[in-house]
Design a protein around this nucleic acid. Structure first.
Length: 590
DNA sequence: ATAGGGTTAG
């Protein structure tokens, strides 16, 4: 009796395992995977776990942190850790952009004393390459040598790719030259390394010497020429390539966009028999870059199935072209669309920028709530956008906190912070930041000087502002209308209207309404009819519909007792309907 | 399994 029971038990166990194994050859949903794991645990079938991990990795199309957490949980609680599941998990994480996590798992695997495979190394190297994690990459390279994997093509190729991405072409070339066996991927890796470091000549040499080229080799060199502005060579390569895919077309379109030839880009786009999401984004972003919001929107509306990326491109288009209300409105539409999208970092970068342009004090806390709600992780891009927003809302300390927390302080970050100090009247801090920036070999741009001049303006430091303005040419910069506008404002507020007018008269370009408006405002502050009239005439001509200019001049007339002139203007103002632009309220979103 | 095209901040 007992004997038969044991035998029956064995039989059942065998059946279960057979069934489980076949189950683990099919695609799983996350829920199924969880159920199977529970079953495995209850029945003590732990040796099946690696198969489960592998199948989860293979089945996952849409990555989520909860899946990653689940996989890690299996690894950490496994009674018998095995190298295969760990390698699968490392690959899984590095494929889905979780580079830090992937590297962490690699380190854990080493600590557990599990023997790494070529699979482990290439995955962990990929994670370091993509996250430009030099220390990690170098330490893995050392382990590769130690474990004797330096003869494996996959691992060597991953190393070439690592050093290419790190920008260390000397080492990349050294590893590459030592390779006995090279495949197309190895060649492509060294090729893209040269292209990334801007060495098109070496890249071309490699390309011409490749024993075998695939569509990726062609695309790489094509986009290299397109990016350096040699669109003719890019086009010639495009014509000669034996096989084309989406990326080939998109790279060429992008090249035409960058060279300012949006018509050719559009013709190519129209000729494409099949377009993918990236083709549409490239075109929308192209129109955005050259300020053609209407054409961008037209394309966006033509697109039947919109995805997150196309929404991002269109929202960015509005934000970049000073239409913050439209940007926010589209953001709302995106959240309320039939197919809901989870906004990501890209979406929020534009949305924050839009809020900042609107200058709504309440935006800051709303944004933070929203970002938390969607699980958005802070990065330097977002932090820089938030610096600007908080500074505009007057919370300079919060802006400083964000600035101090940046991984890398670049030109845009410094400029945002300088501008933030500027509008908050912290001229000394702005100068300090500027000097720090120059010390760090970051070259100021026109926007940086807008921030600096704003600082001097708010502090009323006329001479310092003048000196700063004059120093722009030492940095190879030609002041724009914006800079002249600030200078006119600075001089004008100080009562130096004559000087301000002279500055305008000596401008190398046509002054815009901002410049004349600054003079008009200053004239009204000092009740100066002479310059007020001159400035006003220009403002009326440039922006006939803006009543504020007429009202300023009316005030000037009234202040000197010219009541008739004042009344005449007030009549005109009353006749005009004040055109109020309906805004889209950010706070209405829930 | 390893690689190519696109969207973000002042």
């Amino acid at each position: 009796m007992e004997h038969r029971l044991i035998s029956l038990n064995c039989c059942l166990n065998h059946l279960i395992i057979k069934n489980l194994r076949s189950l683990l050859n099919e695609r799983l949903t996350f829920d199924q995977a969880k159920q199977i794991h529970a079953f495995i645990l209850i029945n003590g079938l732990n040796h099946i776990e690696p198969l489960l991990v592998r199948q989860i990795v293979l089945s996952t199309r849409i990555f989520s942190t909860s899946i990653a957490r689940f996989v890690k949980q299996i690894l950490y609680h496994s009674r018998k850790p095995d190298a295969f599941s760990w390698s699968c998990a490392i690959r899984f994480l590095s494929q889905h952009g979780q580079f830090k996590e992937a590297f962490f798992l690699y380190v854990q695997q080493q600590r557990l004393g599990l023997y790494p495979s070529s699979f482990t190394f290439s995955s962990a190297l990929k994670a370091c390459a993509w996250s430009v994690f030099k220390m990690g990459g170098l330490s893995i390279h050392a382990q590769v040598d130690k474990y004797g994997f330096c003869g494996c093509v996959y691992v060597q190729t991953a190393l070439v790719d690592l050093y290419s991405k790190l920008g260390d072409m000397n080492t990349a070339q050294k590893v590459f030259d030592k390779m006995v066996e090279k495949n197309v991927v190895s060649w492509n890796s060294i090729l893209s390394g040269h292209l990334k470091s801007g060495n098109i000549i070496e890249a071309r040499r490699v390309f011409d010497h490749m024993p075998k080229k695939d569509v990726i080799s062609w695309n790489s060199i094509l986009s290299g020429y397109a990016k350096m502005g040699n669109i003719d060579e890019a086009f010639s390569l495009f014509q000669r390539m034996p096989e084309r895919n989406f990326a080939s077309w998109n790279a060429l379109i992008s090249g035409y966009v960058d060279s300012g030839n949006i018509e050719s880009a559009r013709s190519l786009f129209d000729v494409m028999s099949q377009k993918n999401s990236i083709s549409w984004i490239t075109m929308i972003a192209g129109y955005s870059k050259w300020g053609d919001v209407a054409s961008a929107r037209e394309l966006f509306d033509q697109l039947g199935e919109k995805d997150l990326l196309t929404f991002n491109a269109m929202i960015a288009c509005y934000a970049q072209n000073s239409q913050p209300n439209e940007a926010l409105q589209l953001f709302n539409e995106m959240l309320e669309a039939d197919v809901k999208f989870q906004p990501d970092n890209f979406t929020f970068a534009s949305v924050i920028s839009a809020c900042s342009q609107i200058g709504d004090i309440r935006s800051g806390s709303w944004i933070e709530t929203y970002m938390e709600k969607f699980g958005i992780e802070m990065n330097d891009h977002l932090a820089t956008a938030l610096i600007d927003l908080y500074a505009k809302c007057g919370d300079i300390n919060k802006a400083y906190d964000l600035f101090d927390g940046l991984r890398k302080k670049d030109l845009v970050a410094y400029t945002a912070m300088i501008f933030g100090c500027g509008i908050n009247g912290r001229a000394v801090d702005a100068i300090k930041l500027f000097e720090e920036m120059v010390d760090n070999q970051i070259y100021p741009s026109l926007a940086t000087f807008t921030g600096l001049l704003t600082a001097f303006n708010h502090a009323g430091l006329v001479e310092e502002g003048y000196r700063c303005f004059s120093s722009m040419k030492d940095h190879g910069l030609v002041p724009s209308n914006d800079h002249y506008g600030i200078m006119v404002d600075l001089l004008g507020r100080a009562g130096r209207l004559e000087e301000a007018y002279k500055l305008i008269k000596n401008m190398p370009m046509h002054p815009n309404v901002g410049v004349w408006g600054a003079l008009l405002l200053a004239s009204s502050l000092h009740n100066n009819v002479e310059f007020g009239e001159i400035a006003a005439q220009y403002c009326f001509k440039l922006e006939p519909d803006t009543i504020a200019y007429k009202s300023l001049l009316a005030n000037i007339y009234a202040s000197v007792g010219r009541w008739d002139d004042s009344r005449r203007l007030r009549k005109i103002i009353k006749g005009k309907n004040s055109t109020k632009i309906p805004g889209c309220s950010w706070t209405e979103v829930t």
